[in-house]
Design a protein around this nucleic acid. Structure first.
Length: 833
DNA sequence: ATAAATGACTTTTTT
DNA sequence: AGTCATTTAT
């Protein structure tokens, strides 16, 4: 991906593009700009085979049709695992190979950076090189920025505008609410930020918002507040994420000539995950895609209505449902041949999703039927603790290979949960077991406090008008610039309508501040002047290091004795390291504001734990789906707030979950779960009832204890018709006692049943919360590789902080943590300090 | 300026 | 219930 906005030739001058209808030039045609020679190569390949180019030969007829239907609008309804990405990438390769457009004339939009990255890689593979020449392949937002940078002045901005993230936005709104004299507790900034986001998703500017919405917030000042927010953004020379789409939309509407330029440029438009587009994205896309009557609308949208799971954040499934009306003469192609999963998995998923109404209707199928294929397994557990325990055991069984003689890699397994609080129990269990795991989609790298602070320094150096950055770091590290000083400065700046950094420069000439504050502020300004001067001369990576050193920011963390401090320093180093890949600080800042994710290390063999939402688009050999209970999945709140459509979205989520599995899919439900701290007995999810008998096995009660016996057998027949067998054995009066009994039973049962060393779990008093895990753990095959640690090493763990290595067994360490007590952890999770 | 205390929150998340 | 952030009190 290009690293900064200014290195992209915009309407760079290329030879006059060939009309789509013209015959493709010969293989010796000049390579497209960017020097890839893609077309030439592909053409050569075609000449050799004389029939079908390589890249087309592996496609099934539907896929091939989707690739080759280049003229006019096309909607590809691609079910899970049907080769959607393949179609998109091959289509692009095909456009290039037939010389219908230069790489820079193709607009290809995805939702996430990850998807964009993957697409680039795959096109690269098809075409045999990096896809340097595709500047317009990216997310809605990254393309939005690119457009907006070119025409910023038409939106009242300068082209070096800053992109604010959620945190900045909330702080800004909080200031506005306070400035209005409103109580910021009664009217939380976070909530209003959410409302603005919702309006922007719908493409609404302050004047467009419904009266009811405007009234609902801040004593009816909603609209003014929204307008004030937009005005403030303009003075800050800043944008929020929504603006990256809304500003271009406004510009296109107000300046038909500009829109026309883009029409000329984008000969082919492709959109991934079309079912996830919101109204603003839809309007943006329509402006770009709709052409005068006589010009073909070469737009191709790919999506799956059954995988629309983002309605709650503004996605409009309707966009995909009405594609044919928006683009007359659209060709609709369904991809239903699945290349991922077994027939049982497809059968289960298909039967489930058939309970939804208002689908476009697809049925996935596969030819690859194997009598050994395992059916979808449904397991019952007593409570979430046992669920985690049994699931962990199942994972170890697969890992050892005693299920089917094959040893399974942890990388091929995933646990997909409905809500992130469910993860914790699995994490705890896996730490105890010494099982590698990896949590996907947790807190993001660039959202960490120290990273945001560091970024604020860089932002302010590049963009002195960035008041949010200024306020963030002016007193970080502590410089004796307290609230009073800042308030003073703030008022001074507002009164004169100048940025705070400029105000600071002025104010130190006056005697408005106390001498101490004045001196401190003077030093800050000097530093920033210094850094700004170096901005053009010093390489940006070096400069960033200098900034963090000279500002005292790194020292601040070095002097901090909390458990997180070493990790934070490490993150700062990582930040500096990641800057190396960019040409300039500006380019880097742009990247960060758009790409909030950081790579995970793929080397470690580990089970993935993530939410169902973040699992979309991924696939695993084995998928575990815990927590299929009414109230959790489908989630109560979805039902309460979304009614039937809420339920349907939950069902699609279940569908997404099942279809992630290639070979094995294990679903779990428990009878008791702690919700908001209270134990509640729960009913199995209605989705279990909606699975077809033919493709599902209800596992024998391999996990029942203490009179909790018998296969449930509950699904299939509706459990709503008969008494819940366990409900009354578990009333409120004595639940605590029941809990205690159960814990004992579980321990014994589990220890003896697994045939391993017995785990003794002691509840000691040494740890800060009074709980320590002490004793022998389940025997588990441990590679006898020499550890890089030795007893007594000082180590750091991201969760438990610093500690000393007490014992080593293979890759498992027992560590005495300073704060968290003694824990057993994998060496992959700690670092020497 | 730091520690203690209060109180809000508790579905999903990208950009 | 437990966490986490923000505020209040020292």
């Amino acid at each position: 991906m290009s690293n900064s906005f200014d290195d992209i030739p915009f309407f760079d001058e290329e030879p006059e593009p060939r009309r789509p209808s013209q015959p493709a030039p010969s293989a010796s045609a000049a390579p497209a700009p960017g020097g890839l020679g893609i077309a030439a190569r592909a053409m050569a390949a075609r000449d050799q085979s004389r029939s079908v180019p390589d890249y087309l030969s592996g496609l099934n007829p539907e896929q091939r049709e989707a690739v080759e239907a280049l003229d006019g609008p096309v909607l590809v309804l691609a079910g899970a695992g049907t080769g959607k990405t393949r179609v998109l990438t091959t289509r692009i390769a095909h456009i290039l190979a037939t010389n219908r457009a230069y790489p820079s004339q193709i607009l290809a939009v995805t939702f996430t950076n990850k998807a964009a990255r993957e697409m680039k890689e795959r096109i690269g593979v098809l075409v045999g090189g990096a896809v340097e020449g595709m500047p317009w392949l990216g997310t809605f937002h990254s393309i939005g920025v690119k457009i907006l940078r070119r025409h910023a002045e038409l939106a009242g901005l300068r082209s070096d505008f800053t992109i604010l993230d959620t945190d900045d936005v909330i702080r800004l709104i909080k200031q506005l609410i306070q400035a209005e004299g409103l109580d910021d507790k009664r009217w939380p900034a976070r909530q209003f930020a959410g409302m603005i986001d919702g309006w922007k998703n719908k493409g609404l500017t302050p004047k467009d918002i419904p009266e009811g919405d405007a009234r609902a917030f801040a004593n009816g000042k909603g609209r003014e507040l929204y307008a004030a927010y937009q005005a403030r953004l303009r003075t800050l020379n800043a944008c929020d994420f929504g603006d990256l789409l809304l500003h271009p939309i406004a510009i296109f509407r107000a300046h038909p000539d500009i829109l026309k330029e883009y029409h000329g440029r984008f000969r082919y438009i492709l959109v991934d995950e079309y079912q996830d587009t919101n109204t603003a994205q839809y309007m943006w896309l329509r402006l770009l895609a709709q052409r005068p009557k006589d010009v073909p609308q070469n737009v191709c949208c790919v999506g799956d209505d059954d995988q629309s799971i983002y309605g709650w954040r503004g996605a409009e499934v309707d966009n995909i449902l009405r594609f044919e009306k928006d683009f007359l003469g659209a060709k609709v192609i369904k991809l239903e041949r699945n290349y991922r999963s077994t027939e049982h998995i497809l059968g289960a998923a298909g039967h489930l999703i058939a309970h939804n109404e208002g689908r476009l209707g697809k049925t996935l199928f596969t030819d690859r039927v194997n009598p050994d294929d395992e059916k979808v397994q449904v397991h019952a557990a007593w409570d979430s603790e046992e669920e985690a325990r049994a699931l962990g055991e199942e994972i170890e069984r697969l890992q050892r290979g005693d299920a089917d003689g094959k040893k399974h890699a942890l990388n091929d397994m995933a646990i997909l949960v409905r809500a992130s609080f469910q993860m914790r129990e699995f994490e705890d269990r896996f730490v105890t077991l010494g099982l590698n795991y990896r949590v996907i989609g947790g807190p993001r790298f660039y959202e960490r406090l120290e990273i945001r602070d560091a970024m604020a320094y860089c932002r302010l150096v590049c963009q002195p008008a960035d008041d949010l950055a200024f306020e963030r770091i002016v007193n970080t590290p502590k410089r004796g610039l307290g609230d009073t000083t800042i308030r003073n400065l703030h008022d001074y700046a507002r009164a004169r309508d100048i940025p705070m950094l400029a105000a600071a420069t002025d104010i130190i000439e006056t005697d408005e501040l106390k001498p101490k504050a004045r001196k401190a502020l003077f030093d800050v300004i000097q530093s920033f002047r210094n850094w700004q001067e170096r901005l053009e001369k010093t390489p940006h990576v070096e400069l960033a290091e200098q900034i963090l050193e000279e500002s005292g920011y790194t020292d601040m963390w070095k002097n901090d004795k909390s458990a997180e401090a070493p990790g934070r320093l490490e993150n700062l180093k990582e930040l500096i390291r990641s800057m190396e890949a960019f040409e300039s600080m500006r380019g880097f800042l742009e990247h960060v504001s758009l790409v909030m994710d950081a790579e995970q290390n793929e080397d470690l063999d580990a089970v993935s734990i993530m939410t169902l939402h973040s699992a979309k688009g991924l696939e695993f050999e084995t998928v575990f789906l815990p927590g299929w209970e009414e109230g959790l999945f489908p989630h109560q709140r979805s039902l309460d707030e979304g009614g039937r459509s809420g339920l349907e979205e939950e069902r699609r989520l279940a569908y997404v979950g099942i279809t992630r599995a290639k070979r094995r899919c294990h679903i779990w439900f428990v009878s008791n779960r702690r919700i908001h701290g209270l134990w509640q007995s729960t009913l199995p999810s209605r989705f279990l009832d909606e699975l077809p008998q033919a493709h599902v096995d209800v596992a024998a009660s391999d996990t029942s204890y203490g009179g909790y016996g018998g296969g449930r057998g509950g699904y299939g027949q509706s459990r709503f018709d008969k008494a819940e067998p366990f409900a009354n054995s578990y009333g409120t009066p004595g639940w605590k006692r029941a809990q205690a009994n159960k814990t004992d039973a579980t321990r014994d049962n589990w220890g003896s049943r697994s045939g391993h060393a017995v785990e003794r779990i002691g509840y000691g008093e040494s740890g800060p919360r009074g709980r320590t895990i002490d004793g022998e753990l389940v025997a588990k095959s441990v590679a006898d590789t020499p550890s890089k640690f030795t007893v007594g090493d000082r180590v750091f763990h991201i969760k438990f902080g610093n500690g000393n290595v007490a014992t080593i067994e293979g890759n498992k360490l027992t560590i005495d943590f300073d704060k968290a007590g003694q824990k057993r952890v994998l060496d992959g999770f700690v670092e020497k300090v």
